[in-house]
Structure formats: C-alpha cells, structure tokens
Simulated assay, not measured.
Amino acid sequence: MVVAAFRIYLTSVMRNDGKIGIWGIPGTRRLHRRTLEALRLRKCNRTVVRWNTPTVWGMLQQVKRLVVIEAEDMYKAREEKEANHRALRPPLVVNHLPPSSADSA
C-alpha cells in the first residue's frame, strides 16, 4: 500500500448549533466521545498529528462529523492564512503636542 502522506492533522470542530466542547454536545454518543479521547482530541478547535494508518482511519470513520482531516501542506496553508488574517497593521502614531519652534524652523 502506497501512502501519500505519512502524517495527518486532525482538528476537532464545533457543531453547527454553536455548542462548545466535545463533552457538552447533546446527541454525541459515548462511543464517539471515547473515540475522540483515544485520538487525543480532548478540547474543541485543537489539532493533533497522527500517523496515517488503517486503525486511525477506522476511528475517524466513526467521528467524521466532529473532525477536520488535513494533510500537512493543507494544514500549513490554513495556519498561514489565519496568521495573516490575525496580523496587526502598523500602529498609527498621533502626536497631540503643539509643534515646537525647532520643528518649524
């Protein structure tokens, strides 16, 4: 079996109804919560790296609605996009002091 990516990045996500966290989501089965715990996805919006194995894919098949699966290049591109979005523009410097005579000459 030829594997394209050796590692996969898994991120736990919120459901569409806005519930935060995995443990407080109504309708989530105990088996799904235990599977997420086995994948070490204990909190919402956390990312973990796992080996690309059939065992991991079997667990992901159970919780595919709660997890985003990405390859390494996709993950790095998303992180770079989010970092650029969060980047602050340079500060605006406002001087409230009256101009001195040395500045005008």
Rank of each mutant, 00 (worst) to 15 (best):
V56L: 03
T35R: 01
N16A: 15
R30L: 08
C44T: 14
P90W: 11
E79C: 15
L92C: 13
R34L: 08
N45I: 01
E37W: 12
E70V: 05
S101Q: 12
D73C: 09
S104C: 07
T53Q: 10
N45Q: 06
R15N: 14
I69F: 01
I20H: 05
R65L: 07
D73S: 15
V94I: 14
M59C: 00
L66S: 02
M59P: 00
E37Y: 09
I25A: 07
Y9F: 14
V56K: 01
E72H: 07
L97W: 15
E70N: 11
L39T: 00
I22H: 04
N84S: 06
A38H: 05
E80T: 13
W57K: 07
E37H: 13
N52T: 10
W51E: 15
A71C: 13
K19D: 09
H32I: 04
T28R: 02
R30D: 11
K19T: 13
T47Y: 05
R15K: 12
F6G: 13
I22A: 05
G18H: 12
H96T: 14
V63G: 00
Y9W: 13
V2W: 11
A71G: 13
R78C: 03
L36M: 11
V2Y: 13
R42K: 05
A5C: 15
N84V: 00
R40P: 00
R7T: 15
R30Q: 09
L92N: 14
R46C: 09
Q62M: 06
R78P: 02
L39R: 01
I22G: 03
R78M: 03
V63Q: 00
V2N: 12
V94C: 08
R86I: 00
E82P: 00
P91C: 09
A87T: 15
K81H: 11
R78G: 04
Q62N: 04
V49R: 15
R50Y: 06
A71Y: 08
S100Y: 11
P90I: 09
K19W: 05
M14F: 07
L10A: 04
W57L: 05
R42A: 01
R15H: 14
L66E: 02
S101H: 07
V48S: 03
F6L: 11
L31G: 03
S12E: 02
C44P: 03
